[in-house]
Design a binder for these strands. Structure first.
Lengths: 204, 204
DNA sequence: GGCTATAGTTGTACGCCGTCCAAGAAATCA
DNA sequence: TGATTTCTTGGACGGCGTACAACTATAGCC
């Protein structure tokens, strides 16, 4: 099709390496698996691993990073040149988040959270998780500030809370086993205290 | 006083090493400063550096980690054996956070956030920041769940939002320069959208 | 003073991650 | 056939964090 470009064809694929890595992670645990071992099982040199993944921890976040890009696009597309409106921007942000969350079926839970304890990921998880969290929050904040006209601090605080709700929901969802369904309702549930406002949890 | 214990006395101090490290971070940037260099300037061996700090990045968070412990204590002390009450627990959590925030004077801003760009800290910051964030959120969630009787998901989502507000406020505060004053009012400002609820930002 | 227990310091070695680069190998294009 | 492009590979390097054994300096006690 589109192939037959010039140059040497790829001998391996991203998926091959990813599969080998996940196998080893589940067998031995994440920290006790070296990049050498992954490359060896995938039948590839160590250098080639880094041709496909910038870091060992990136394997844990394959699906997430793609979705983050989709979310950014979705936010950029929506209300391209409309008047600023905080309420509208807020709804758009939540809707975009839920739309992306709906794409995460029971199968698509990232290894990083489902197998966090099975793989013995402790601090390593945290170290690689925050860049993703920050990227999500930044995208949301940008939208709220630009299309919602919200003040910078408010926009960032709000979007951080949104991102935190997503992260919380993702952890619960991933731990819920194979009957978890889609991520979307979990995010929706985690949004409850934010919609109501913190003060009103008094009546909960 | 309490000293004169048996054993060899310390030849160096945590502060000495911290000072040397921060000097170098500001001169050359964080990633271009090696632990060897820090130890050398502090007049100590590399092994001794790791006697005082578990990781290079810990130097950036000296004050923060202490305050995190204080917060946990404060939360544990409050309402030790009272009836569960979500509203009350919530107020206690916010109060504890604000109390700790009030202790951060203009001088006490952690290097990690004030000098983030001066030191060229990019991803390294994120990697070392999340464990702190998670610890804060976990302490708050534990309190809300135990003393507030809140459902697990709600408690965690709420506390994550709280922690996110603190983090957002801390960044703004640290960037505000030496006239920033105490962290407390910044946190209070970042809590505004949470108190009101996300939906009500429509009217903002 | 000498002996012992204790606590801090130092050198050394190790495994691993992530980066860099130069050399090679397999394809297309002319 | 040769040139160009693209991917692969090996090797070397610097750096972090861990482990450990050897050493040093103190206090307490006989």
């Amino acid at each position: 099709m589109t192939s037959a470009r010039a140059g040497r064809p790829r001998r391996s694929s991203r998926e091959t390496i990813e599969d080998a890595a996940v196998e080893l992670f589940l067998e031995q645990g994440y920290p006790r698996t070296s990049v050498d071992q992954i490359a060896q099982r995938a039948g590839v040199s160590r250098a080639s691993f880094f041709n496909y993944f910038a870091a060992k921890s990136d394997v844990l976040w394959v699906g997430v990073d793609d979705s983050a890009h989709r979310l950014a696009e979705e936010l950029g597309r929506v209300s391209a040149d409309e008047a600023v409106d905080p309420g509208r921007a807020m709804e758009e942000a939540v809707a975009a988040v839920l739309a992306v969350a709906a794409d995460f079926g029971p199968e698509r839970a990232p290894w990083a959270v489902t197998e966090a304890e099975a793989m013995g990921i402790g601090d390593e998880l945290g170290a690689s998780a925050l860049p993703r969290f920050a990227a999500l929050a930044a995208a949301l904040a940008d939208h709220l500030e630009k299309h919602g006209g919200m003040e910078r601090t408010i926009a960032r605080s709000t979007s951080a809370a949104l991102a935190a709700a997503v992260a919380t929901a993702a952890v619960d969802w991933a731990r819920a086993g194979s009957r978890r369904g889609t991520l979307a309702p979990w995010v929706d549930a985690a949004l409850v205290p934010l919609r109501a406002g913190l003060g009103s949890s008094r009546s909960a």
